[in-house]
Amino acid sequence: AVSDRLIGRKSVVMEAISPQNSGLVKVDGETWRATSGTVLDVGEEVSVKAIEGVKLVVEKLE
């Protein structure tokens, strides 16, 4: 599936994300709604860990 190619990809937070609120990330020039178990600020680099419905699950790059 097209979405499977996103797992493991680097992306950049475009709208802040917290455990309570989804935000936005940009992956390969496309904007996606995303969630995370931690707070992520605009501009942080993250990695796509999973896809749940139409949202990406991301975490901060170490």
Rank of each mutant, 00 (worst) to 15 (best):
V57G: 01
E15P: 00
I7C: 10
P19V: 05
V39Q: 11
E62T: 11
I51R: 07
E45R: 09
G53S: 04
V25D: 01
T38G: 09
G23I: 02
T31H: 08
T38L: 08
W32K: 02
K10S: 09
V42E: 06
V58E: 02
V12P: 03
I7L: 09
L24Q: 07
V27L: 12
T31R: 06
S36V: 01
S47G: 07
T38Q: 15
T31D: 07
S18D: 07
V58W: 01
V25I: 08
R5W: 10
G53R: 01
D41A: 13
E52Y: 09
V46D: 02
L24K: 10
I17Q: 01
I7P: 05
D28L: 09
D28N: 09
S36N: 02
E52S: 10
V58C: 03
G53Y: 04
E52F: 10
V57D: 01
G43A: 03
A1G: 11
E30Y: 09
T38F: 10
I51M: 07
G8L: 03
V25Q: 00
L61V: 10
E44D: 10
T35N: 06
E30S: 08
E59Q: 08
T31M: 13
L24Y: 11
T38K: 07
S22M: 12
D4A: 11
L24H: 05
Q20A: 11
G43H: 04
V54K: 12
I51T: 05
A34I: 00
V2R: 09
E45W: 15
A34Y: 01
V42F: 04
E52I: 13
L6Y: 07
V48H: 01
P19C: 07
A50P: 01
V54M: 14
V13C: 06
Q20V: 10
G23D: 01
E62A: 11
E52P: 01
W32H: 08
V57C: 07
A34R: 00
G37L: 13
K49T: 13
V58H: 01
S11P: 08
T38A: 11
G53C: 04
K10W: 11
A16K: 14
P19Q: 05
R33D: 08
E62C: 13
A1M: 12
A50T: 06
A34D: 03
M14D: 04
D41V: 12
D41T: 10
E45A: 09
L40E: 00
D28T: 02
L56M: 05
L56H: 01
S11H: 03
V48I: 14
A1K: 12
L6N: 03
K55R: 13
E15T: 11
V58S: 01
K55M: 15
G37E: 14
M14S: 07
T38Y: 11
E44P: 00
V58N: 00
E59I: 09
V13R: 00
K49Y: 08
A1W: 11
V57H: 07
T31L: 15
E44H: 05
K55F: 15
W32S: 00
G23N: 01
S22D: 15
E15L: 10
V46A: 15
N21C: 15
T35S: 08
K49H: 07
T35K: 08
W32F: 14
T38W: 10
G29A: 06
A1V: 11
V58A: 00
S47P: 02
S22G: 10
R9N: 08
